[in-house]
Nucleic acid binder design. Structure first.
Length: 506
RNA sequence: GCGGCCGUUGUCUAGGGGUUAGGAUGCAGGCCUUCCAAGCCUGUGGCCCGGGUUCGAUUCCCGGCGGCCGCACCA
């Protein structure tokens, strides 16, 4: 097994070689940091993850929508992203080093009142206080904006931005959604789509992208719903690995193992509805194939929270490449967003409660797909003296079944191709291979995580059975051709295990 | 964005001012082969991009792009 230091290289090497992801894109022009291409296997894997995510949201009674990626500036003024996404930056005139102007001033002069100051005022403040470059002592230049949103232009001169999150575009639909939901709250919607962040210097490849696919689920609800959340009873006894902020502040890294109900009683969660969302986020990541041992839920420290968040918990996944990785945020956004959009759009975004207008709250589950995608490959990678393989859970494996003739002889190739076509037509993603020795073909499939391989041999011609070979155990069991399709569908969906099939062959 | 190191076939790498740029592996075709990267033959494919120095640059210099590490950034 490679050391942790080299592990990233192992995953990137394998991904490049086998076609999971390539980049930075566009590679033939040297690439731009923060942009990656998905190869055929990466796209299959991502589709499977999105499929699991979509199914989980639908089961939880969320409805999917899709909004434009580009929105005019006013949307982002309203959402707060034009303020929140712009960092005041100052640059040393001598060594060129760039700093966040506000944090720099605060570090040296904690008592300076700089909150809410304009760029000009910050520039003046730096001169007034005599703040200089911490690394070389040179004079600092004027404070300018660094915008983390990608700007574009619509038509001739309409200022617009590529969305830095999908959530805001979902909120813009609120009036329409109210009609769709026949004015009944709570109402839950989600969106899966591209979002863009113009990171200053993205590193860590797939984990920090300038363009990525975001999944964001939103629940519109009232204060009363947050306390009286019917689905909560169904999950109150589920256990979660929780790392509340108080625990982190005391230096603990080991999460509590307590039930959702207990966590609520102890005040780690403010409301049953929010607790339910955290559990839903956790279960979505379970569905994507992460084991309990590599997952934990970490609460944001109060100073970590985003401009809109009243409370925030993250789903974190453990990787061999980077240790714990933040993969999903669960936010209580309160009525911040709808209030802002009501104010800026002058549209009524309230509902009537006891004949009074009330702006609903929003609970949000937000994550990018590329992070779990990377983490899943990272977690799936196994290497021993004999072989290298990806231990994807069958339901998310990119290629589900491979079909081989034992040798490239016509009498075996014919039936093997027939089986391949049958399986392909049944809806499975199947790979046919007759090149090289049978062992080499097994290894090829191991390395891309194909859970099951079918081999047609001379016995097949006699008794119409084939061997089904299990990726993880390398064990084989003979299955009748007539039952092959249904057996494989069942195996791939993890409805039956290979072990049980081996114990009770058809 | 700053500083340091780095950039050779698909992957891993050797080399180095004039080389047919070498190896391993992969991949393709063939022979062989009755279940786990066997063997043999043939083939495939490379010096990140742009300038400069030089008779000549993949090699040296400058810039760009990208990667890694540190600082900053990660709403």
């Amino acid at each position: 097994m490679p050391t942790e230091k080299d592990f990233t290289d192992v995953i990137y090497g394998l991904s490049r070689k086998r076609g999971f992801f390539w980049g930075p894109s566009p590679e033939i022009y040297g690439g731009t940091a923060g942009f990656y291409d998905l190869g055929p296997l990466g796209k299959l894997l991502k589709n499977r993850l999105e499929g699991q995510i979509r199914a989980a949201f639908v089961r939880a009674n969320f409805w999917e929508v899709e909004c434009p990626i580009v929105s005019p500036a006013v949307v982002w003024k309203a959402s707060g992203h034009l303020e929140g996404f712009i960092d005041p930056v100052t640059r040393c005139t001598k060594c060129g080093q760039a700093y966040r102007a506000d944090t720099l001033i605060e570090e040296e002069f904690p008592d300076a009142h700089i909150h809410g100051l304009s760029l000009e005022a910050l520039t003046e403040k730096i001169q007034e206080l005599g703040v200089v470059c911490p690394s070389c002592g040179g004079a600092l230049g004027p404070v300018e904006q660094y915008n983390l949103m990608l700007r574009t232009r619509v038509g001739l001169d309409t200022e617009a931005y590529l969305r830095p999150e999908t959530a805001t575009t979902t909120y813009l639909l609120f009036k329409r959604l109210l009609t769709f939901f026949r004015h009944r709250l709570p109402a839950s919607v989600f969106q899966i789509g591209k979002a863009f962040r113009n990171e200053i210097s993205p590193r860590q490849g797939m984990l920090r992208l300038r363009e990525f696919t975001q999944v964001e689920g939103q629940i519109f609800l009232l204060d009363s719903h947050e306390q009286d959340w019917a689905p909560f009873s169904g999950i109150a006894d589920r256990r979660l690995p929780l790392l509340p902020y108080q625990l982190q502040e005391s230096g603990t890294e080991t999460p509590l193992d307590i039930t959702v109900g207990e966590a609520l009683d102890k005040g780690y969660f403010q409301t049953p509805a929010y607790a339910w969302c955290v559990h839903l986020a956790y279960s979505i990541f379970r569905d994507m194939g992460f084991g309990e041992d590599v997952m934990r839920l970490r609460q944001h420290l109060p100073e970590e929270r985003a401009h809109y968040a009243a409370d925030a918990w993250d789903v974190e996944i453990h990787t061999r490449s980077f240790g714990w990785v933040e993969c999903c945020g669960v936010h209580d956004r309160g009525d911040y967003d709808l209030s802002r959009h009501q104010k800026y759009s002058k549209e009524r975004l309230s509902v009537k409660v006891d004949k009074k207008p009330v702006i609903p709250n929003v609970l949000e589950i937000a994550f990018g797909v590329e992070r779990p995608l990377y983490c899943l490959i990272d977690n799936a990678y196994v290497e021993d003296e004999e072989r290298t393989w990806l231990r994807f859970p069958s339901p998310v494996a990119p290629i589900q079944v491979a079909v081989f003739p034992l040798m490239g002889k016509p009498e075996l190739v014919g039936p093997a191709r027939e089986i391949y076509n049958t399986l392909l037509n049944s809806g499975l993603v199947v790979y046919y291979d007759q090149g090289g020795s049978i062992g080499r073909r097994y290894r090829r499939q191991d390395e891309i995580g194909t859970p099951f391989c079918i081999t047609v041999d001379y016995d097949t011609l006699e008794d119409h059975t084939v061997t089904v070979r299990d990726r993880d155990s390398m064990a084989q069991v003979r299955v009748k051709c007539s039952e092959l399709t249904s057996t494989l569908h069942s195996l791939v969906r993890s409805e039956t295990t290979f072990a049980s099939l081996a114990a009770d062959p058809t």
